[in-house]
Design a binder for these strands. Structure first.
Lengths: 217, 217
DNA sequence: GTCATATAATGACTGACGGTCATATTGTGA
DNA sequence: TCACAATATGACCGTCAGTCATTATATGAC
């Protein structure tokens, strides 16, 4: 490996770390590419050697974060109860997100079609691959719980939709730093997420007893 | 009312309608204030007589939409079963959002602290008031279902967190026009939302039977 | 080690666009 | 009708993402 290639790789890591630090200080929308270049000790044009756009920096940070989360979840030990394994993965995910609100904000920002359409192919492809990996992980977990009789037989697909929706919502709340707008007695985000875990679990278990066409009180 | 006041009022409505039309054509991020002014037949500076910023236009559209949704939900007939009333409100909400994806996008965009902090007091206050009204509606619905014995006694608050999270997620998916990123067999959004209604209902009902400290298969 | 050439870094420049404000135009009310 | 207040206008301004001609550095053949 040539000196230049190694320098390029290291500088790219430095730029991402520097961006993260600056974003934490000032908010990612407010940080300019010039500020990032100055902080990292390079010229502004050099930043564009590494990243096609400011948005590509956001994407790189989101991808980096998502990858490390997935690694964590995939290496978690299995419990005797597959449903408990699911709950633990969900808890771990919430805990991870709670300690990285900035990254959560970036992930949400990137997870929109207009944004994705502005990325180059390789980054877009990376998001897709990650998405598929998350999906596969969820399927594995749910299928194990169904096979163990802990969850009623139901397509992992439709369960995923419910869980996905909750995750999106929790991410938005974590990204916002709370339940927003002082709307009501605000719990700590930890308590909030534990309640949501319970909500998800119930959602996965489904209604019991199974309702008739017109359930009556 | 003076001619000028009536003209101002009508022009403001025209500007909002024109903005909505342009946003649908080109995407709200891409539409410039100049384009909006030209389409509406006024000078650019006149737009700023009505709205403090481009973001204030977003906020006005989001507020308008949210208000009309709330009116609809509050005027829906009650069912003999309060739980069914809840489900119907949720269905109506999803249906409303499904037919107004642009407005949903704008609502999501506005529902972030950084955005809110850039609004003037009156718009920020309007968002808060609406938020409280939505919250009160949910509380009413849930309390009726609890009183009818259809939902286990539980604080409406904690139930709200689960439902709120799901709503956020569904909104994000509707705003994105689907489940994003070609990740898996994509259902129609209608089918998707029906499954999510079921997930929410189960979440509201909670786990049954109530699990012990360590549920085993 | 030298040096011609390729490669990479630099920062002044460019254009887009949100927002402003001096000037022109229109409305108001005595 | 007309002096004055209120309002509309669009050229202008500042910011910032992104660009690229010029300068600096790395590379590899000899």
């Amino acid at each position: 490996m040539r000196y230049q290639d190694e320098l390029f790789r290291q500088r790219e890591e430095l730029l991402l770390d520097t961006a993260l630090a600056l974003f934490r200080e000032c908010g990612w929308e407010k940080v300019t590419v010039s500020q990032l270049a100055a902080r990292a000790g390079v010229a502004k044009g050099t930043v564009y050697k590494h990243f096609a756009s400011k948005e590509a920096i956001y994407a790189s940070l989101a991808l980096r974060f998502s990858r490390s989360c997935l690694e964590q979840y995939e290496s978690m030990p299995h419990r005797p109860s597959p449903l408990e394994s699911i709950r633990e993965v969900i808890r771990a995910a919430f805990a991870r997100m709670l300690s990285h609100p900035l990254e959560v904000q970036l992930c949400l920002h990137c997870d929109r079609p207009e944004f994705q359409s502005r990325l180059d192919e390789s980054q877009r492809g990376a998001f897709q691959a990650l998405d598929e990996q998350y999906n596969a992980l969820f399927h594995r977990l749910v299928e194990a719980a169904v096979a163990a009789g802990e969850i009623p037989p139901k397509s992992p697909e439709s369960l995923y939709w419910g869980v996905d929706a909750v995750f999106q919502g929790v991410m938005a709340r974590i990204a916002a730093g709370g339940l927003g707008l002082e709307r009501h007695a605000t719990p700590s985000l930890e308590i909030y997420s534990e309640h949501v875990v319970e909500f998800i679990t119930a959602g996965l278990l489904g209604r019991f007893p199974d309702p008739g066409p017109e359930a009556s009180p």
